[in-house]
C-alpha cells in the first residue's frame, strides 16, 4: 500500500470517528433532555425511573403480536368485518349532518360516522406544547382546543 493511500485511510477513519462521536452525542443529548431533564432546564424529573420504564414497556409492546395487528389501519379492519347486508343497509340509510363536515348514518343498531375534512371550517389557535414552545394548530371552528401542555 502506498503511503498516500495509507494516509487517506487514516484520514477517513479519523473523520469517521469524529462524525460517529457527534451523532452519538446528539442522540444521547436528545434522550437526556426528553427523559431525564424537565422542560430543557437542569431540573431533573421526579419520575425519571417511571418514565423510562413506561417508554421501555411501550417499545417492547411493539413486538407483541396483538399490538402489531392493531397497527393495521382501522378502516381496513372495520370494512372487512362488516357483512354485506349491513353495508347495503348503511348505504341506503339517510345521512344527517351533526356538525359542518361530520355526517352520521344510523340504522337499527349500527351507527356510521363520516368525516369530510375538506368541508370542516378550521380555526387557527396558538397552542403551548409540553416542551414550552408555542405552535399554531388547526381545530374545527366552535370547538375547544386541547388543554395546554398536554402534548
Amino acid at each position: 500500500m502506498s503511503i498516500k493511500k495509507h494516509h487517506r485511510i487514516l484520514k477517513i477513519k479519523f473523520f469517521g470517528r469524529i462524525i460517529l462521536a457527534l451523532v452519538l452525542s446528539f442522540f444521547v443529548s436528545k434522550f437526556l433532555t426528553d427523559n431525564i431533564f424537565l422542560n430543557y432546564s437542569p431540573t431533573i424529573r421526579q419520575d425519571v425511573a417511571k418514565n423510562i420504564w413506561n417508554k421501555t414497556n411501550y417499545l417492547a409492546g411493539f413486538f407483541n403480536p396483538d399490538k402489531l395487528l392493531s397497527l393495521i389501519p382501522f378502516q381496513k379492519k372495520f370494512s372487512s368485518q362488516i357483512p354485506n347486508e349491513v353495508k347495503n343497509e348503511l348505504t341506503s340509510a339517510p345521512k344527517s349532518e351533526i356538525q359542518k363536515g361530520i355526517y352520521v348514518k344510523e340504522t337499527n343498531n349500527i351507527k356510521q360516522t363520516e368525516i369530510h375534512y375538506n368541508e370542516i371550517e378550521w380555526e387557527e389557535v396558538n397552542y403551548l406544547r409540553k416542551s414550552g414552545t408555542t405552535e399554531t394548530i388547526r381545530i374545527p371552528k366552535g370547538t375547544n382546543p386541547p388543554p395546554p401542555q398536554l402534548f
Binding site: 452519538l24 452525542s25 443529548s29 437526556l32 433532555t33 431533564f37 430543557y40
Partner: peptide, 12 residues
C-alpha cells in the same frame, strides 16, 4: 434549545 446544545457539547 440551548440546554440540549450544552449537553451535546460536553457529551461530544
Amino acid at each position: 434549545p440551548f440546554f440540549q446544545i450544552i449537553i451535546f457539547y460536553f457529551l461530544s
